[in-house]
Each structure stands twice: as structure tokens, then as C-alpha cells.
Design a binder for these strands. Structure first.
Length: 737
RNA sequence: GGGCGAUUAGCUCAGUUGGUUAGAGCGUUCGGUUCACAUCCGAAAGGUCACUGGUUCGAGUCCAGUAUCGCCCACCA
């Protein structure tokens, strides 16, 4: 009596059941075996503020394929899941919700309440996300699940901050930084994106102090002239050579400022003379440093002119600009104005125009960290797939600048620094030169020091700022394994094997992990960086909510099954290349899942004894069975072909050509095995050829399921359990040799 | 101003170290109703592999240059 098997594969009937079975069996949790080399992937932790999108589905699928493949090779395999608190992203996201639903700001709630609410929010998002990862079939080890704000991870973050401070790698400095007025925080250079905007270049006459004439400067931001502390020209510019060292009267003020020569000035631009406002322009800040110019702040963090702006104090930037222009015009000091397109920095999160400001921030001195991180890639200790990204990485690393790690946010790791209340020095006089060597009374410590070492009596107050999210992310490959404690996990699984992530975060994340990994542990954090591309829509557009072309991966799973989505995401794609996604594609691979199901269904119905003759264990036994059989020449060719395909697949998988392996499997299974071989052999399933024909088809089916399993885990497992019930879970089976 | 990538069938894209008639999905046309699967099968149309030159017995694949498009980095006020 044959059991009735449905005509189509029904993912809904199988997926949840199979996933629970896998998870409950403990198959995702590796056993530490010192005799064997582990295979480890730390999952890039998704932001705990939203649902999974199609890009997550891509990386989850790629990593799951790698992990399932290596698990089937018999390696102790760890795929460690987690979530990121995503400082600025989550805070901005949650503030929007707060505004919309309760019409409140973070200040209305206060820091403590705000963080508590956001934590609650993040927990809920995490739980939902973990459910979605399961829907995709992610075979990660949930017993080791981590969150960046977990107490042990946080402790490791504070530990690292202190270690770096003690090693002189962290300093607090008054620097010009990118300030986002909307988020009210400083940003790193990477969090700023430049966009072209229409502007106007204003040529202003600055009278020479000796009354001999004018020097004309061009600027897009006339209002900042109130904070000018010099005019600069190129040292090789003949026009201005004799003016260097002279002074000019700064219009609208009673100040006189010098003319200096600096190579950063472009002779060709404007008049070749440039006003220098160290407090409000990064280039000017650097020129100012070279010439020891004072830094004069005329724009505050509230986007208004400061008291130092004299008559203009309190005006918003645009109003100040209008008034400055009007006043200059009245005095006849405007030479001309021309339309001018130039690029201006915007906050990568909220798209608000950033304002360069001088403020006190914490920085990581990057050069000592970058050097070994460059070497690690140059010597091949760390390899990139595809390797062209090594150039991108090196190009950036060789020009890297100090890293601003403080954020004026509430959501994140609060900087473990404590100030003496009686000599706080929190707000220093920013008009003074920053390199005055001022000393501040603070202690670096995770917990509040029992006694203030400075005044001996105050309760110390903690730094208000939090750390850049990427600081804790940079430690992720080892804080997840228990570092700085020498735990069994850390000892065994570190350094990890593969870091699989998007090329868009090479600088944000990959570079920082390499630098901090080597610094903290003395070893590279991973051997291989696999870069996945962006998922684009059918027309190749970037996917975004505003374009309305989002593809919800879970909706695709609901409609076509996880196997179909997975196969649609990876088949025929190459590392580092963007990939397109469409419902058509998913539908096509749903048909493939069904094809697998039906091939098995046919064999189960037509072939007697297959299910009752388990070819258990190492694949060698399957071949032994075949060798004992009277195979004809055609059988031998068919089996040799399959053997060749198997070797090709294994070779591709080992080289991380996952998309190609998937495509080859698809093509072989459907168009060779189903269309040709089953059709050919189905007439031989009775009579004297029955035994051999059965064995050949059975062998290929069974081993195809093994090879296919990393790509389409659900349908292969469903078939496996239907046909070979007694043999256990497919994901713990060995691959064909 | 530097760096990187793309250009292959109507559309979206693969093509591993150079090797026989260049592939897939979707779409198009024609033919198949029992015999695993119409979420299927068989067949067909459709490509000077952007252009030019070079290396080679042999180039979609390697080299140089050109064109178009795209991306990243950078302090041009």
C-alpha cells in the first residue's frame, strides 16, 4: 500500500513543523570538538528597530547556505545570531513614532524614561525579527543569541574603551565635527553624504588695514565671515605675494585679521583668496591649526548666531545671512554674486543639512590601528570575495582619519567617563585655542567611582554622550563569544571563518572590526569577507519605501514558500554584484521546489523497495551498493556524469560561488535528472533491469537532495522524511563524496 | 580630483583559471488531455557578447585604448 502524497509541495504544511524539529533537536548548536576545526559565522546583527527587508533575506540566505553546507561536511558549525541597538537609526526612528503617536519629544520623556521605552520597543522588534529569521529557515544557534546592549557585551565595550584610553588611543578634543541640527548630535564623516545644491557665490571686499585697497574673497556662506580669523592665499600666487603678512579690516566687525599663505588654497577658484572661518568649515579649521589662528564660534548648536556675532546674535542662520549681505551691500563691499552649484553635507539618517561646528568630542586615534589592519589584508590573512573590494578597503584605510566616536544621543553605550562635579570643565571656553593643553578632571570607569579622586568629596557625574553604534559593532565578532573572558566559545570559535555582509558597510563596519579585532585580541577577527550586493527591483532600481517598490520577504514566503524565495535570491547571482528581485523569479523557483517534490513522489510511487532499503550513512555505502549491481554502460555514464556534477558543485561551494552552484543544481536536477533520466529509466523499472534502474535513480535522487539541501532546506527535508523516514534530519547528513 | 564597476536574447541577469554549436528566468510562437508534476512536457524564434586594436592555434573571457551609464571616496571656499 502506497501512502497518498499530495500532487504539489505545500510549504505551509511543512515549514514551521520542520523548523521546530530542527531547532528542538539541537542541530543548530555545534559541539565543541578540539580535534576538528570549527566553521564560524557571526551574523551581522540586524537593527532592532524594524522588520526584516529583502536585503536581510539575501544575507540570511547566503549565510544559511554556507552554514548548512559546512555542517553537512561534518564541521562543528556555529552561526551566531544577534541584533544591534543601532544608536542613531533607532533613536531617530523611535522619536518619529513618539512624535506621531504621542506628540512628544525625547525631552518630554527625559533620558531615563526615553531609554526605557526604546528598550521595550527594541525587544518587541527583536522578537518579531527572530520569528522572521526562522521563517526564512535560518539555521542559527539561538542558544547563543546576542544583543549589543546585553550586560556582558556592554561590559566588553566599556572594557575596550578603557583599554584604548589607557593605551593613549582615545582622546577628547575640541574639533570641528559634522553636526546634525535635527538629530542634535555630532556625526562621523561616514554618516554624512554630500549632495549638490544650488547656491550663490558672493564676492566680498575686505579692506586692507593700511588703506591701500581691498582683497576680494568668495564665499557661499557670507554669515560665517563674522567668525573669520584670517584670509588665506596660495603661497605661489604671484598676485598676492606681497600681501601675505599684512592685515585686513574685517567688515561689520571691529577686528583686524591677518593674511596668511597656505597650500590648501586653490589659485584658480574664485579670486584665489579665501576667508578662513576655523569654527565653521573643516578646511578652514585645518588651515587655522597650521597657522595657530583663533577659533571663533559664531553659530551655535541651536542653529542661531552666538553672542560672538555681535549685532547678529540670536538670528537664525538664514536671517543672519540676509542681514550680513544687506549690511555689506550698504557699505559697497559686495563685488558681485554668481549662481553656483556646490555639494553640501547632509545627515545620512534624516537628510538634514549638516552644520560643521567646533565641539568637544571623543576620538579614536586611528593610525596605530589602521597599520596592522592594512597589513592583514595585504598579506592575505584576510581575503575578500570578490577580491576587488580589497582595493576599496585599502584605498580608504590608507587615507583614514581619526574617528569621532561620541554621539549626543541617549540610546547606546554611555561613555564610561566620570567628571568631577566641582571642577567639571565640561564646557570649556571654545573660543580659546583648543591646543592649550587644558587638563580636565575625569576618570575612565564603567561604574561610578566611589570617591572623586580630584576634590575627594563630590559624587562624580557621567559623560552625557553615548558611543557611536559602530564602536560596539566593531567588537561584535568576539564580544559575542564572551571576550574579554577567555571562554570556551572564544577559545574555540575565534577567529571566526567568514564575515558575510554588504559592500556598503565596508568602511563603517568591516574596517572597524578588523582594526579593533586585531587590537583587542591580537588576531584577525575573520579569514574571509564575503560581500553581498544590493537587492534591486525588477528594473534595477534601488528598493526604498519612498519608491514604493519594497518586496516583503515574509509575504513571499507566505505565498511561495521559503525555498522559492531563497533560490530566487541567490541562484545565478555572484558575490559583490547587485541582484534583482521580482515575484516572477520567486514563482519560477516555487515551481522548482515542486519539481523536486514530484520527482520524489514519482519515485516513491513507482519504485518498489526504495524506501525500505535505506542506503544509510556515508555515501560510500551507496556506491558500494551500486558496484554490487549489474550496471550497463549507460548506467555507468549516467553515474559518472552525476559524479562530475557533484564534484563541480563541491568545488563551487568551496570557492563561495554559491549562485553558480545553485544554478547548476537547478539545471541538472530539472533538465537532466527529471527531463531526461527519469523519462529514460521509467520504462526499465520492471523486469530484469528493475534493480539497476532503481538503484541509479535512487542514488541520484538521494544525493541530489543532499546537495540541494543548503539552498532549499524545506522541500528537501520534507522529501527526505517522506522517503527515508528512519534516517533522521537531512541537515545533519553528510554530503556525497 | 582620485578609485571601482557595468555594457551578453524583447526584459532582468549568469558565464569558474581563455577551449567544441554562448546560458537561465520571465516574455513570444507552435505542438502535446490518461501514463510523477499544466507550478508540466516537447519544439521554435531571438545575440556581429558596446566599439577599436593587440596577445594566442583559439578571446564573451587576457592586455591597451574609446564611448556610454552607474557607484564610492575627497577640505575646492
Amino acid at each position: 500500500m502506497k501512502q497518498e502524497i499530495p500532487k504539489t509541495f505545500d510549504p505551509k504544511a511543512w515549514e514551521t513543523k520542520l523548523y521546530n524539529q530542527w531547532e528542538d533537536s539541537g542541530s543548530f548548536t555545534p559541539k565543541i570538538d578540539p580535534k576538528q576545526r570549527p566553521y564560524t559565522i557571526i551574523m551581522p546583527p540586524p537593527n532592532a528597530n524594524d522588520q526584516l527587508h529583502i536585503g536581510h533575506a539575501l544575507f540570511v540566505t547566503l549565510e544559511d547556505i554556507m552554514v548548512r553546507y559546512h555542517r553537512m561536511k561534518g564541521e562543528p558549525t556555529l552561526w551566531l545570531p544577534g541584533a544591534d541597538h543601532a544608536g542613531i537609526a533607532s533613536q531617530v526612528f523611535f522619536e518619529k513614532i513618539l512624535k506621531k503617536e504621542e506628540n512628544k519629544t525625547r525631552y518630554d520623556l527625559g533620558r531615563e524614561k526615553f531609554v526605557e521605552r526604546l528598550r521595550e520597543f527594541a525587544v518587541n522588534k527583536r522578537v518579531a525579527m527572530e520569528g522572521q529569521l526562522r521563517r526564512l529557515g535560518a539555521s542559527c544557534d539561538w542558544t547563543r543569541n546576542k544583543f549589543t546592549l546585553d550586560p556582558d557585551v556592554s561590559a566588553a565595550v566599556y572594557h575596550t574603551f578603557k583599554k584604548m584610553y589607557d593605551d593613549g588611543l582615545i582622546y577628547r578634543g575640541e574639533r570641528i565635527i559634522n553636526w546634525c541640527p535635527r538629530c542634535a548630535t555630532g556625526l562621523s564623516d561616514l554618516e554624512v553624504e554630500h549632495q549638490e545644491v544650488e547656491g550663490r557665490l558672493t564676492y566680498i571686499k575686505y579692506p586692507l588695514s593700511d588703506g591701500s585697497g581691498f582683497i576680494i574673497v568668495a564665499t557661499t556662506r557670507p554669515e560665517t565671515m563674522l567668525g573669520d580669523t584670517a584670509v588665506a592665499v596660495n603661497p605661489d600666487d604671484k598676485r598676492y605675494k606681497k600681501l601675505v603678512g599684512q592685515r585686513v579690516k574685517l567688515p561689520l566687525t571691529d577686528r583686524e585679521i591677518p593674511i596668511v599663505a597656505d597650500k590648501a588654497v586653490d589659485k584658480e577658484f574664485g579670486t584665489g583668496a579665501v576667508k578662513i572661518t576655523p569654527a565653521h568649515d573643516p578646511t578652514d579649521f585645518e588651515i587655522g591649526e597650521r597657522h595657530q589662528l583663533p577659533v571663533m564660534v559664531v553659530i551655535g548648536q541651536d542653529y542661531k548666531m552666538t553672542d560672538a556675532a555681535g549685532d547678529y546674535a540670536g538670528l537664525k542662520i538664514n536671517a543672519a545671512r540676509d542681514k550680513v549681505l544687506a549690511d555689506l551691500r550698504e557699505q559697497g563691499l559686495i563685488e558681485k554674486q554668481v549662481e553656483y552649484r556646490h555639494s553640501v553635507g547632509h545627515c545620512v539618517r534624516c537628510k538634514t543639512m549638516v552644520e560643521p561646528l567646533v565641539s568637544k568630542q571623543w576620538f579614536v586615534k586611528i593610525a596605530p590601528l589602521a597599520a596592522p589592519a592594512i597589513a592583514a589584508v595585504k598579506t592575505g590573512q584576510i581575503k575578500f570575495i570578490p577580491d576587488r573590494f580589497e582595493k576599496t578597503y585599502l584605498n580608504w584605510m590608507e587615507n583614514i582619519r581619526d574617528w569621532n566616536i561620541s554621539r549626543q544621543l541617549w540610546w547606546g553605550h554611555r561613555i564610561p567617563v566620570w567628571f568631577c562635579k566641582n571642577q567639571t570643565g565640561l564646557i570649556s571656553n571654545i573660543q580659546s585655542s583648543m591646543s592649550s593643553g587644558e587638563r580636565e578632571n575625569f576618570v575612565v570607569s564603567q561604574n561610578r567611582p566611589a570617591k572623586c579622586p580630584f576634590c575627594k568629596k563630590c559624587e562624580m557625574v557621567q559623560e552625557e554622550d553615548t558611543l557611536d553604534t559602530w564602536f560596539s559593532s566593531g567588537l561584535w565578532p568576539f564580544t559575542t563569544l564572551g571576550w574579554p573572558n577567555n571562554t570556551p566559545d572564544f577559545k574555540y570559535f575565534y577567529p571566526t571563518t567568514v564575515m558575510e555582509t554588504g559592500w556598503d558597510i565596508i568602511f563603517f563596519w568591516v574596517a572597524r572590526m578588523i582594526m579593533l579585532g586585531i587590537y583587542c585580541t591580537g588576531e584577525v577577527p575573520f579569514e574571509l569577507v564575503y560581500m553581498n550586493g544590493l537587492v534591486r527591483d525588477k528594473e534595477g532600481n534601488k528598493i526604498s519605501k519612498s519608491k514604493g517598490n519594497v518586496i516583503d520577504p515574509i509575504a513571499m514566503v507566505d505565498k511561495y514558500g521559503a525555498d522559492a524565495l531563497r533560490m530566487g535570491l541567490v541562484a545565478g547571482t555572484a558575490a559583490g554584484n547587485d541582484t534583482t528581485m521580482s515575484e516572477d523569479k520567486v514563482r519560477a523557483y516555487r515551481n522548482f521546489a515542486n519539481k523536486i517534490w514530484n520527482a520524489a513522489r514519482f519515485i516513491q510511487q513507482r519504485v518498489s523497495g526504495l524506501a525500505g532499503q535505506p542506503q544509510r550513512g556515508p555515501s560510500g555505502q551507496a556506491s558500494q551498493k551500486l558496484t554490487g549491481m549489474s550496471l550497463n554502460d549507460r548506467d555507468k555514464i549516467v553515474l559518472a556524469d552525476f559524479n562530475k556534477i557533484t564534484q563541480d558543485i563541491v568545488r563551487m561551494m568551496d570557492k563561495y560561488q554559491l549562485g553558480q552552484a545553485g544554478e547548476l543544481l537547478y539545471d541538472y536536477f530539472w533538465h537532466t535528472f527529471c527531463d531526461k533520466l527519469i523519462e529514460e529509466y521509467k520504462t526499465q523499472l520492471t523486469g530484469e533491469r528493475a534493480e539497476a534502474a532503481t538503484a541509479v535513480l535512487g542514488h541520484i535522487l538521494k544525493n541530489s537532495l543532499r546537495l540541494l539541501h543548503p539552498f532549499v532546506p524545506f522541500v528537501t527535508e520534507a522529501v527526505w522524511q517522506t522517503l527515508y523516514e528512519k534516517e533522521g534530519l537531512l541537515l545533519t547528513q553528510e554530503l556525497p563524496a
